[in-house]
Design a binder for these strands. Structure first.
Length: 270
DNA sequence: AGTTTAACCTGGGTGC
DNA sequence: TGCACCCAGGTTAAAC
């Protein structure tokens, strides 16, 4: 489910229930996620206070006084605040119970998600080489252009590379390229500065808009508060293969790029 | 160093 | 109803 807006929506939904709370108990029902859930999660976390819930790329970082829990939702992960006495479902792999009587419940049917423990997130191998956050000032058109000099890959794969910029997943990559009028297959190093400026702006605006309306509901994504996201209604091309382009009415094209489904308008995007 | 490919999983939808 | 088949929001590790 989760792209950056969905992760951010989850963070905003659960943070009020968790920040400054002491962890009372951790229940791990299934350790086989993307990587085995380290025993530090159940052994180190209880007793500690969650001081801040931050996000880096699509990772949620639960910072305590003595260590940070890193959580990734993978393809099918979701988080809810529950009463821990509520029976756990088949794919509810982990509960983090806190002092206010609530628990964070991590569900992930496909188990591509992960839960890790680190003393220093900035130095963690999975985080240290990530590109800039798309919603910060250092991410802009000139940055994209400079970074693309040596890259011959299609621009869609370029903006989905987390070493270039984080948080642009398959849905919003297609959407941003539509807004910028750029063909997803265009080689990254063959886009001039002005169009890179437009692309950076399109990425920012599509992510900001999706966060503002609570993410995109696909299948069963819900934010931490259980409310569905409404960005689905605003998708211009993603999942609309064969349907008329909202701008020019020409049928939206569907192709596969880097083993991911890709949608664009061959008239509006060059 | 950049690019491509396979791999990790389950569940839902479709078509026969 | 059952079953085979295809598809899905992500990311890494290894091979080229």
């Amino acid at each position: 489910m989760p792209e950056l807006p969905e992760v951010e929506t989850s963070r905003l939904g659960i943070a009020p229930w968790l920040e400054q709370q002491q962890v009372l108990k951790v229940v791990v029902r299934e350790r086989r996620l993307r990587w085995p859930v380290p025993t530090a999660i159940d052994h180190e976390l209880p007793g500690k206070f969650i001081r801040a819930l931050r996000r880096r790329a699509k990772y949620l970082l639960f910072e305590t006084d003595g260590g940070t829990m890193m959580l990734h939702l993978g393809m099918s992960g979701s988080l809810r605040i529950v009463d821990p006495r509520e029976p756990a479902g088949k794919h509810d792999h982990v509960d983090i119970e806190v002092a206010n009587g609530k628990a964070l419940r991590f569900r992930d049917p496909r188990r591509f998600g992960s839960l890790l423990w680190t003393a220093d997130p900035d130095a963690h191998p999975l985080l240290k080489d990530l590109g800039p956050e798309p919603l910060t000032p250092e991410f802009d058109g000139p940055y994209l252009w400079r970074t693309a000099r040596s890259r011959r890959i299609p621009v869609k794969q370029f903006i989905m590379d987390s070493g270039v910029v984080v948080g642009v997943g398959n849905i919003y990559a297609s959407e941003a390229l539509f807004l910028a009028g750029i063909h997803p297959r265009r080689r990254a190093n063959r886009i001039a500065v002005p169009r890179m400026v437009a692309l950076a702006e399109a990425i920012r605006s599509v992510l900001l808009r999706a966060i503002a309306v609570g993410g995109t509901t696909l299948r069963d994504f819900h934010g931490g508060d259980g409310e569905p996201g409404y960005f689905l209604r605003e998708l211009n091309v993603y999942g609309r293969g064969g349907l008329p382009c909202r701008n020019c009415l020409k049928p939206v094209s569907a192709i596969v790029l880097g083993q991911r489904s890709t949608f664009y308008c061959s008239n509006c995007q060059r």
